Every structure is written in C-alpha cells, then in structure tokens.
Simulated scan of single mutants.
Amino acid sequence: MDESSSPTVGRRRFLGALSAAVGSGVAGCPGTVGETERSGGTDLTPAPVPTIEAGADVLPGLSALPCPRFPGGAVVGNRVCATAPDDPLALVAYDRRAGLPTATLRFQFRNSGPEPLSGLSPPWSLQKFVDGEWHVVRPLRIRSGTDSAATGAADRRTWSLAVDNGATRRLDPRRDRGVELDGDVTRLPLAGLGGGLYAFVVAGWLGEVVRERPTAVGARFRLDGPALELTPTADVERTDPGGPAVVLEADPGLGEAVTYGLQPALDWEDAPTLPAEEAVLNPPLRNMLAAYSPSTNRVTLRTRRHPAYPVLSERLFSYRGTVFWVEPDPDEG
C-alpha cells in the first residue's frame, strides 16, 4: 500500500499546512465536523480545532481537498488552510452538506479581537473544486460599501448562503444587489450552482497593526444535485442554426453594438478551466455556450456591451472537456 495515500499521512499533511498557514498570517478551513441528522438537512454543528483525532473523514473526499484560495487574489500564493486555537478570527460552526435546487447553508464566525474585520474587497469568496483546482465562482464583480462592511464588527456574525436555482433573476448582472445585511447576519442570495464540492471563505484585516497580513477563515462543503446546465437568457431574440454555424441575436437594452465569436480550438489540449457556475453570470458567454453542440464549428452572437456585464475579451478556456476560443469579431462588430 502506498503510505502517502493513507488517511493518517493525509491528516499529517493537513496539519503541516496549518502550521505554514499560521506562520504567514493566514487562517481558515477547519477539519470536518460531526453531523446531526434532522428532517430536511443537517444541524449547524461546532467546528473543532483540527487535530489528528478530530480530523477524521466523515464525508469522503472533503478533508482530502487542497486548501481554497484567498478571496479576490488579495494575497498571491496564499491559501486558506486551517485555524489556530489562538486566532482572533475563527469559524465556530457551519453546515457542510445540502441538497439542490434550494438550500441554505450557514457559516458562523467569531471575532474575539478588539478590532472589526474589514478593508478587503471583496471580503468573501465562494469557490468550486473543478478539474483538480479551486475556482472562484462568486462574486465575479468587486464591490465597495455594503459588501466591504458585510464582515461586521467584533463578536459573532453568521453568513447565510441562500441558494435557489429557480430564482433566475439573481443570475442577471443588471439586477445583482450583492449581499444583504440583517443585524448580525450577512445573507448571500445565490442561484446557478450545480452539485459538487465548494469552499466558502471570509477575509479581511484585523486592525491597523497587521495590515500587511490579512487573515481569512473558511470551510469546505458539498452540494448534492445535478450538474449545472447552461440555458439561453431571456434576451436572446433569434437563433439561426445555419448548419455548423450558429448565429444568435440578444439585446440587453444598453451599450454599444458588438459581435462575439466562439469556436472550438482543435489545436489546443490544455487551457484554464471555466466552471459552468462562472459562465452562467456572463450573459454573452452563457448564450454562446448554451447554443454550442458537438456538430457546431462556430457560434456568433450579435449583442451589446451592457455596462453591468462582465468584460468579455479574447480568451482561451476549457469547458467540460472542450477547449474554446472566444473573441470580439473584428469582421462583424
């Protein structure tokens, strides 16, 4: 038996990551927690300090995952790995499994220090584990104001992830209102999530003294459900199949006219992965991928650059096993 793949060695590596993370001022991602069954889901249960004994796998695969990323790439190269007992910011309880299409997951953080957690934009990150890597799928827009203040002051704050895949208006960047603050609860209305392994991370600075070393805490969890399938937005007005060449027209209501082209990049084998949960928040990209089929050699979209939409520029990416190239079409713009 390969010793490197044993649970004991895996837990030792996790604790090694804990030591390295604390040394660089980064904290987060406690080990898995005990589960209390109840009708319709699981109770919020305490998160223990990770040790070899308390770090045993309950959900196979969760604690074996690598540590998620820092929100917004604020600390390049750092990962959110583990919580030390004396860290002022700690995750004290969280939900670690839920079922789609609707789910509510709660993450309760405690700040025992004298300073509020603040200053990082964005202060939170929802990530999905796809193709062996963590990918940030929310938020895709960096905000100020409400989002930056959402981590709250000292004591405890609960972040509530309210997932409803039927609430399609939440996927429209023109209507996205960000987080909702209600007392000591920060609510995140979410939609467009498929089944899989996720991580939720909250981060910021604790006072002026450690501004060069922001801190972060997070947890990994599982959503049970089917994979997310992309469908066209309501703005798609016409689709011309045209054999292997598909032409779409969509009018979001504002912006200058632009034409995008998407086609498989047959000469490329490796490219950055694009999760469906990220693509669903970029309407032009979503519409082109929804129209693509294996018999298609090009999808053309005539639309407008709405100011609320994510910027779509030339890029190479891999989506569910196919490498694509997308670009503004210079011949039809």
Results as ranks from 00 to 15, higher is better:
Arg174Asn: 04
Asp131Asn: 09
Val236Met: 03
Tyr198Ile: 09
Asp176Arg: 13
Pro241Ser: 03
Trp159Phe: 12
Thr158Gln: 03
Thr231Gln: 12
Glu133Gly: 06
Val201Met: 02
Asp184Ile: 05
Leu188Trp: 05
Gly207Lys: 08
Tyr198Glu: 02
Leu190Val: 04
Gly196Pro: 06
Arg187Val: 14
Thr168Val: 12
Asp155Glu: 01
Asp182Met: 13
Leu206Lys: 09
Asp176Cys: 05
Ala154Thr: 15
Gly243Asn: 07
Pro123Glu: 00
Arg220Gln: 08
Ser148Ile: 14
Ala167Leu: 06
Ala227Trp: 09
Leu206Thr: 01
Gly242Tyr: 13
Ser121Gly: 11
Asp164His: 05
Val236Lys: 14
Thr146Ala: 15
Val185His: 10
Leu228Glu: 03
Thr215Val: 10
Arg174Thr: 10
Arg170Cys: 00
Ala149Trp: 14
Val202His: 08
Asp147Gln: 12
Arg174Lys: 15
Gly194Met: 03
Leu126His: 00
Trp134Asp: 04
Ala162Asp: 08
Val202Tyr: 06
Leu171Ser: 02
Pro214Arg: 05
Trp205Asn: 15
Asp240Thr: 15
Gln127Lys: 02
Glu237Met: 11
Glu180Val: 15
Ala234Leu: 12
Ala153Glu: 14
Ala203Tyr: 00
Thr168Gly: 04
Glu229Arg: 13
Val210Lys: 12
Gly132Glu: 01
Thr146Asp: 15
Pro214Leu: 04
Val202Met: 08
Gly242Ile: 05
Gly132Thr: 07
Arg169Lys: 12
